[in-house]
């Protein structure tokens, strides 16, 4: 039973700071199926990242429940892998050291570690940079390492927190296509946080739109695109534009309240 199903039911998250508690997420429910590419969009401050960290088990839900394969989330586990917006690579380890870390922590023997790591380093186009330290890499390269190290220890679910948000357009597109290839090939479940509507529609099968503060479910939109086509054909297609507009309108209603 190595599946990647995520179910959130009536999730509430309240941050208890010094004096005033802040409700980040309220009564949020959704389901992500095994192998699904699921995006979450919402205005800034709607608790998207909080949601991701709850699934990852970094934070605890205040009430409600999140289950992964019918087990309630209680802390981080190697069945889920997070790709952070700020990469969060270990600066004191080389690319190879970063990618083998998760394998070493899970008792994979040394030779096998290197072999697996090398495979994902090559997949992400990082060959030749094995002995480079993160500070010498560009943002795009760092995020490739971030993906490689997460893929290396083979979590069933990828949790991605605006992973390409800090990159410029061409790089972002390249990494998006990279990610789609990996997703198709490895059959991972992906929960993808973004504020970029086009990115969400281009990548995912379903998009969850969250309301603003406290964040809750506004709408889930199914996306039906012919994915056998290449990028240009997809983004110029009528379905793409229509879906994008639908998501955008829904999101705009939310952001309007803020101004």
């Amino acid at each position: 039973m190595n599946e990647g199903r995520v179910i959130a039911s009536n999730v509430e998250k309240v941050y208890r700071s010094e004096r005033t508690p802040t409700t980040a997420i309220e009564d949020l429910s959704f389901e992500v199926g095994d192998g699904e590419f699921f995006s979450v969009v919402g205005p800034s401050g709607c608790g998207k990242s909080t949601l991701l960290y709850l699934i990852a088990g970094f934070l605890d839900v205040t009430s409600g429940m999140i289950t992964v394969n019918d087990h309630a989330v209680e802390g981080p586990g190697t069945d889920r892998g997070v790709v952070f917006q700020d990469y969060a690579l270990f600066p004191w380890k080389t690319v190879m050291g970063n990618v083998t870390y998760g394998l070493a922590e899970n008792g994979v023997p040394k030779d096998e570690r290197r072999e697996t790591a090398q495979h994902f380093i090559d997949t992400m186009g990082l060959d030749g940079f094995e002995d480079t330290y993160p500070k010498e890499l560009s943002g795009g390269m760092k995020q490739r390492v971030g993906l490689a190290r997460t893929l290396a220890y083979d979590p069933k679910i990828l949790l991605m927190d605006e992973p390409f948000g800090a990159l410029d357009q061409p790089l972002r597109e390249a990494l998006q296509d990279n990610l789609l290839d990996i997703w198709r090939e490895l059959g991972k479940t992906v929960v993808f946080i973004t504020h970029d509507v086009e990115e969400a529609v281009y990548l995912s099968e379903r998009v969850l739109i969250m309301t603003r503060h406290p964040g809750t479910r506004k709408q889930v939109i199914d996306i039906d695109l012919d994915r056998t086509q290449d990028r240009e054909a997809i983004i110029t297609s009528e379905e793409f534009t229509e879906t994008k507009n639908e998501v955008w309108r829904s999101l705009r209603e939310e952001t309007k309240h803020t101004v």
Binding site: Y53, A56, G57, F58, G75, P76, G77, T78, R80, G81, V82, F84, D86, A88, L89, F90, Y101, G102, E105, N106, R149, Y153, P155
Partner: peptide, 12 residues
């Protein structure tokens, strides 16, 4: 950096 600690935790 809290994210580094979380990274290590998620990798086991």
């Amino acid at each position: 950096n809290q994210n580094l600690i979380w990274s290590a935790r998620m990798m086991g």
